[in-house]
Amino acid sequence: MSDCLRCGACCAHFRVDFSVYETASYCGSVPDGLVVEVAGATVRMRGTDHWPPRCAALTGTIGERVACAIYEWRPSPCREFEAGSDACARARARHGLPALAADG
Score class of each variant (00 low, 15 high):
3 D>H: 01
6 R>F: 04
10 C>M: 00
11 C>N: 01
11 C>Q: 02
12 A>M: 03
13 H>D: 00
14 F>K: 02
15 R>W: 07
16 V>D: 02
16 V>M: 07
21 Y>N: 05
21 Y>R: 15
23 T>G: 14
25 S>V: 01
25 S>D: 08
27 C>W: 15
31 P>I: 15
31 P>T: 15
31 P>L: 15
31 P>V: 12
32 D>M: 13
33 G>E: 14
33 G>I: 10
33 G>S: 15
35 V>P: 13
36 V>N: 09
37 E>G: 06
37 E>N: 06
39 A>P: 05
44 R>K: 11
45 M>H: 12
47 G>D: 06
48 T>L: 14
48 T>P: 06
50 H>E: 09
53 P>K: 12
53 P>Y: 10
55 C>Y: 12
55 C>T: 03
60 G>R: 03
61 T>A: 08
61 T>S: 04
62 I>P: 10
62 I>V: 14
66 V>K: 10
67 A>E: 05
68 C>F: 12
69 A>I: 12
69 A>P: 13
69 A>G: 11
70 I>Q: 00
71 Y>Q: 04
71 Y>F: 03
73 W>Q: 04
74 R>Y: 10
76 S>D: 10
77 P>N: 03
78 C>L: 06
78 C>V: 14
78 C>M: 05
79 R>K: 08
80 E>S: 14
81 F>G: 06
83 A>M: 08
86 D>G: 01
86 D>P: 10
88 C>L: 09
89 A>D: 05
91 A>L: 04
92 R>S: 05
92 R>N: 02
93 A>C: 03
93 A>Y: 09
94 R>S: 10
95 H>R: 11
96 G>A: 11
97 L>N: 11
97 L>A: 11
98 P>Y: 07
99 A>T: 06
101 A>P: 01
102 A>M: 03
102 A>H: 03
102 A>Y: 07
103 D>L: 09
